[in-house]
Write a protein that binds this DNA or RNA. Structure first.
Length: 780
DNA sequence: TCAATCCGTATC
DNA sequence: ATACGGATTGAC
């Protein structure tokens, strides 16, 4: 009966829009990720492929489909013989372009990232694949790939450094302990929860093959490098590295020695224990993972370029992510130097949409083996990925501000995990996360020994216990601690530039006398006073001392008002202190990349410090207040990172380089700076966070929204055992913020529960938004 | 008994 | 969002 009705109903009226399309004979089903932001629709949907679309409808192409009556765009994830879907399948509306812009590995990565961050695949894909630019796409940039073999081996002539460090219990650490316990892990493709049967692109087994256009290697079909078990899974084993050594690397024979300083005498990677061995392992295409603490003065971009070149020589691809455009330019130059032109592309926001898409296409079409960029590049497709690198992983620019707020370090490590490739987490400082990778055995550290370090370090001293003021008769306005003043003067007299790191404007305003506007100065060190926190006790931004009974030295008034002392003001004052010396500033508005080697005062905010030709003669660190603003969990780590990054620009003390940090020498971060021991500091920091249950020792997530919405969300949330609920506390715009905390072993469970709760809310058409952030960038 | 309408739910 | 199915309602 019913059938009798439906059949004529379908056949009769002129409702059919398009004349009957025939499904493709082979693999007629297309599994599609549709671009809808609703969590309860975060799974692939199946469509029929019309015979006419058969050829174009390959995995990775953009498609348009009718979804709930609307025409929406999506990505074709895979082709299948049949669909588990009970009902009728609609046809793909059209294949937008035959460009396979979504790499199967990237699709897999995106799913894993979505799962980790309790987000939607479609949100991650929006971050991973830039908007299409049809004109660029049609311009066939037929730029043939050059062979990989013409890249010189920077290590060709280097004897392998002995690696005496004992090999701590090298028990096979399950890989998934590193980026995240319980994350996609060993099972490989599938991934938890809503990924659908067998993972979104699992069918593309053959897809691996597509990557090998010219850089393919035999016997690595599935991208695994398991031939040396201990290493692939256990990370960089010291003992193993030693043995890798001179045993005639694969193609090392054919490589030419690189010009200039040999590595054996403590230059380049040769300056680090395990450095040459790491590079050699990369050149052999092995999945070695390391956390690298760069030496002061290190030309980090050159080192990364060398690591990239070694990987490329093994016929494999590289992705490098740096915090900002300036770092990117530096790396870009270094890569051009090592690889030659046309072997890499730089992806950054600065380039317009067309240029950005052009470069992305170059990577996507495997025209280049190396992709570098700011965080958007973390998803860049490359053929046969062999190495991922992140520089300065503590920089908050690595945190993506769009949902689901993934962090570049975690994305890259997940990537290394999924494709079983090498990883390098690098910086002058070491984050708690980096330390955790080491302690968990997922990565090994690459550090220099103390002797090398001592030779490269500037002399570093604190002034916190030196309250004596500079009293230079010629510069009455100069108000620097005497040690800082002396160091600056000596450096200038010796003909060198001086770097002064000052607080970024707009963080904590300093204060001035409410009556006469005289800036309020610390009675001890003359640093700027600030009104941090709720208390009204003004506190010094430099030395941290509280000035409880402050009275204005000019007019005697006791009331203070907020004012802003930024880099410019400091620059003016310093200019007066050192007459005749040029003063330059580098900050948010105008950033200097480099300065010359002649005497000058360079006032810079953190992150904007230029590199000086020959290094700075002195570096003055005046922003120790950041330490004391207890607002953020990472305050100490961040301070350490800023100090090391600035201090790294000083000359070695053998050439007169000095660093003065205006802070109390007994504070742990100051101690770590004085000894240049980021590893010690990170271990201490991590231990403390373990004790307090802070990330990365535990996994946290935040829920932000109107209080009804947060309550509703919490109601729908089936938290894993042992989860803690903290808050809610008031947040901006009459919103509330609630924190959730679980052990690392429950991290994946928490993310899944959050996604599920969001799904049930969105299925019920809940309108009030709740922002879900796993590992929120800012805590407290 | 049928059509109009409402509501909930799936969206291929 | 929009479309559809099933339930509900109301008029014949």
């Amino acid at each position: 009966m019913a059938a009798g009705k439906t059949v004529p109903a379908r056949a009769a009226p002129a409702k059919s829009k398009r004349p009957d399309r025939e499904p493709a004979t082979r693999l007629p089903v297309a599994r599609v990720s549709v671009d809808v932001p609703l969590p309860h629709l975060d799974r692939p949907f199946d469509y029929l492929v019309a015979a006419a679309d058969d050829e174009a409808a390959q995995p990775g192409v953009r498609v348009k489909v009718r979804f709930a009556g609307q025409l929406v765009s999506g990505f074709l994830l895979e082709r299948a013989e049949s669909s588990p879907h009970g009902g009728k399948l609609a046809f793909l509306d059209k294949v937008v372009s035959s460009e396979r812009i979504l790499d199967p590995d990237v699709a897999r990565l995106a799913r894993a990232v979505a799962d980790r961050y309790a987000g939607n695949l479609s949100d991650v894909l929006r971050l991973a694949v830039p908007p299409r630019h049809a004109r660029v796409e049609s311009q066939a940039t037929a730029d043939p790939e050059r062979p990989a073999a013409d890249i010189p081996d920077p290590l060709a002539d280097v004897p392998i450094a002995p690696t005496p460090t004992p090999n701590p219990a090298d028990a096979d650490h399950p890989p998934q302990c590193a980026p995240d316990q319980g994350d996609p892990g060993a099972a490989g493709v599938g991934g938890p929860a809503p990924a659908g049967a067998g993972g979104p692109v699992s069918g593309g087994g053959g897809a691996d093959g597509s990557a090998s256009g010219g850089v393919g290697r035999a016997g690595l079909g599935s991208g695994r490098v398991d031939d040396r078990d201990g290493l692939a899974s256990g990370g960089l084993g010291q003992g193993d590295l030693g043995s890798v050594g001179d045993g005639g690397g694969l193609d090392a024979g054919g490589a030419e020695p690189v010009g200039g300083a040999g590595l054996a005498d403590g230059h380049g990677w040769g300056a680090y224990r395990a450095g040459p061995a790491y590079l050699r392992a990369l050149a052999e295409g092995r999945a070695v993972r390391a956390v690298w603490s760069a030496l002061p003065g290190e030309d980090w971009a050159a080192r990364i370029a060398e690591a990239a070149a070694a990987t490329v020589r093994a016929g494999r691809g590289v992705v490098v992510v740096v915090p900002d455009a300036r770092d990117l330019e530096r790396l870009d130059r270094a890569l051009t130097g090592v690889l030659g032109a046309g072997r890499h592309v730089a992806l950054n926001a600065a380039a317009g949409p067309a240029e950005r898409y052009r470069r992305f296409l170059a990577a996507s079409r495997h025209r280049v083996p190396v992709v570098v960029g700011t965080r958007a590049a973390m998803f860049a497709p490359v053929a046969e990925l062999g190495l991922v690198v992140i520089w300065d992983d503590g920089d908050d620019l690595h945190a993506e501000p769009r949902a689901p707020y993934p962090h570049a370090r975690d994305v890259l490590l997940t990537r290394a995990q999924l494709t079983d490739c090498a990883a390098l987490v690098a910086g002058f400082a070491r984050t708690g996360e980096g330390q955790l990778l080491i302690e968990a055995g997922w990565a090994r550290e690459i550090v220099a020994d103390r002797a090398t370090l001592r030779a490269r370090m500037p002399a570093i001293s604190p002034t916190g216990d030196d309250p004596q003021l500079a009293r230079d008769p010629g510069a009455a306005t100069a108000r620097l601690p005497s040690l800082a003043w002396q160091a600056a003067r000596q450096a200038l007299q010796a003909g060198a530039p001086v770097l002064v790191q000052v607080p970024r404007r707009g963080y904590l305003p300093s204060v001035a006398c409410a009556e006469c506007r005289t800036p309020a100065r610390c009675p001890h060190c003359s640093g700027p006073l600030g009104l941090a926190g709720a208390r009204d006790v003004p506190t010094c931004h430099w030395c941290g001392r509280a000035a409880a009974d402050y009275a204005c030295p000019a007019c005697g008034a006791r009331r203070l008002r907020a004012s802003v002392t930024g880099a410019r003001r400091t620059a003016e004052e310093l200019g007066r202190a050192f007459p005749g010396v040029p003063v330059r500033t580098s900050g948010r508005d105008e950033i200097l990349d480099t300065v010359g080697g002649e005497p000058a005062l360079v006032v810079a905010t953190p992150g904007a410090e230029p590199v000086a030709a020959g290094g700075f003669g002195a570096v003055l660190l005046l922003d120790s207040w950041a330490l004391l603003s207890r607002s953020d969990l990472r305050a100490a780590e961040e301070t350490m990172r800023r100090w090391l990054s600035a201090a790294a620009l000083a000359r070695p003390h053998g050439r007169g380089g000095r660093v003065i940090v205006v802070a109390d020498g007994s504070l742990a971060p100051v101690q770590a700076l004085l000894r240049w021991d980021p590893g010690w500091f990170a271990a201490r920091e991590l231990a403390e966070r373990r004790e307090l249950g802070f990330p990365p020792a535990a996994r946290m997530a935040s829920l932000t929204g109107r209080s009804e919405a947060v309550a509703e969300m919490l109601d729908a949330l089936r938290l894993p055992d042992g989860a803690e609920v903290l808050g809610p506390v008031p947040a901006q715009d009459d919103q509330e913020r609630m924190l959730l905390r679980v052990s690392r072993s429950k991290a994946a469970d928490l993310a899944q529960a959050l996604h599920q709760a969001a799904a049930s809310r969105s299925a019920k058409k809940a309108t009030l938004p709740v922002r879900i952030q796993v590992d929120p960038a800012d805590l407290f």
